[in-house]
Amino acid sequence: MVPGATDDRAPAPDLPTFLARIEGRAYRMARFATGDRDEALEVVQDAMMKLVQNYSARDPSEWRPLFLTILQSRIRDWHRRRSVRNRLRDWLSPFLDDEEEDAMARVPADPSWEPLRRLEDGQFSIRLEAALAALPLRQQQAFLLRAWEGLDAAEAAAVMGCGVASGKTHYARALEKLRVGLEDLR
């Protein structure tokens, strides 16, 4: 078990219990990846629906890796669509309103973090959130899956849909960036 992993990963007795257990974590992962509350909720709901539709008859021990795989796949799809939209926007920008928009201004504040900021470790959490949000998607996925979800290298690579070596590289780079970014808080 990777340090930091919590112990609510035992197979759930039924699908509603499983989804209720994992939905908050899934939302946080989707929120880091999308930077938007509504987009994150939609990604999580899509993943839930896909799991219920296609895999509800599977053994409960399979639900978690299946759900994480679906969720990460949905997140990657979301990023691809956003990349296409951004390219299209760049291409059309000479014909559109030339008012500059700060990219960070498009990221809404997450009210879910407000109570957290009042906690003793609030400063670390704020910095961690910023550092995670700034990671490239694959590094972000690798870190969350391994450090938070407690998957090993092979499991994380399978969920991410990449090779084990590639997954390890993403994870190592994520750790390095977080180590540097949070150095003064340690």
Partner: peptide, 14 residues
């Protein structure tokens, strides 16, 4: 230590 603190922080965020 970083991973432990990060995991605890993420759990609290949930």
């Amino acid at each position: 230590d970083l991973i432990r603190r990060a995991g605890a922080s993420l759990d609290r965020s949930v």
